[in-house]
């Protein structure tokens, strides 16, 4: 018992920065994972990745002007994320480039631009902070931001749930019965940007999207129903957040990457043993049913 306690609970009981990290991870799990489920089901996983990178130059300009300031970097990230989301859609419609290719070009540009801006003004430490976050150095303001984003996300999702699901399953049907299709899509993109900016403070631009996609992709291997998938993805994200922090504490690993690695481990296990389309499930010879 005491061994379990000292391994799994004591770090959070004894150290304030671990508790803060856990609160941040819980907030991210509650809001990011449901957004990630819809991102995956809309086949927008790569879009999310591209937008996560797109947040970087905006945050970097905020950093250049005001240093490591929470409001400046948040606003910069929000503006840049929204701009790239709209631009990529416009470029895909106006030119012959497919949306995935135009997104990839945008995010490579954004990443290079962001790293350059941060390097001009700051040190390598700052760069690491921006790229990989600082989940163990969350101050009150950042925690409030994470909690606020989680609240807004969950409330918006609960309002938009039906039209969002219908827009994913049968957009033509939604169009034939309601005009909510386009506003729903835009609201969802806004939620995505909002969560990326929140995740950016804890996990950095490179890993923020991981807390969304990995739990969602993990849940996909266990459940074939969207509601259950959302619940399970949140559970997976919570476990990954807690396990990542524990691992980072005991083995001196960087916290953000540990959280993503924990989520990745859960994902790989599910990919192998998951009953809904996992590898073993397809390989095991099982007698077919009578009907």
């Amino acid at each position: 018992m005491t061994v379990l306690y000292s391994w799994l609970i004591a770090p959070f009981a004894d150290f304030d920065f671990m508790r803060r990290g856990l609160v941040g991870a819980v907030a991210l799990a509650l809001s990011g994972a449901p957004v990630g489920v819809f991102l995956m089901l809309r086949r927008m996983s790569l879009t999310g990745d591209a937008m996560a990178h797109a947040v970087l130059p905006g945050a970097a300009i905020g950093f250049m002007l005001y240093g490591l300031s929470l409001p400046a970097m948040t606003i910069g990230g929000l503006v840049a994320g929204c701009a790239v989301a709209l631009l990529a859609g416009a470029v895909a419609r106006a030119t012959s480039l497919r949306e995935d290719a135009s997104l990839a070009s945008f995010y490579l540009l954004s990443l290079a631009l962001g790293v350059t801006i941060v390097s001009i003004r700051g040190s390598n430490i700052d760069l690491l902070h921006v790229l990989f976050g600082s989940v163990l150095a969350l101050d009150d303001a950042t925690l409030l931001l994470l909690g606020g984003v989680a609240t807004v996300t969950l409330m918006t999702l609960s309002v938009l749930y039906r039209p969002l699901v219908m827009e994913c399953v049968d957009p033509g049907f939604l169009r034939s019965v309601s005009r909510l299709g386009a506003p729903t899509h835009l609201a969802f993109l806004s939620l995505l940007v909002l969560n990326l900016v929140a995740g950016f403070h804890a996990l950095g631009t490179l890993l923020a999207i991981g807390m969304m996609i990995l739990p969602a992709a993990t849940a996909r291997f266990w459940i074939e129903d969207v509601t259950g998938m959302i619940v399970l993805s949140v559970v997976v994200a919570l476990i990954a957040g807690w396990a990542g922090l524990v691992l980072s504490f005991h083995f001196g690993l960087p916290a953000g990457p540990s959280i993503i690695l924990a989520a990745g481990a859960l994902h790989v296990v599910s990919l192998v043993v998951g009953p809904a389309g996992g590898l073993l499930h397809g390989l095991l010879p099982r007698p077919h049913l009578e009907a």
Partner: peptide, 11 residues
């Protein structure tokens, strides 16, 4: 031709 996404996990 409905643009129904048949891979969406819904019953």
């Amino acid at each position: 031709l409905s643009d129904l996404d048949r891979s969406f996990p819904i019953g």
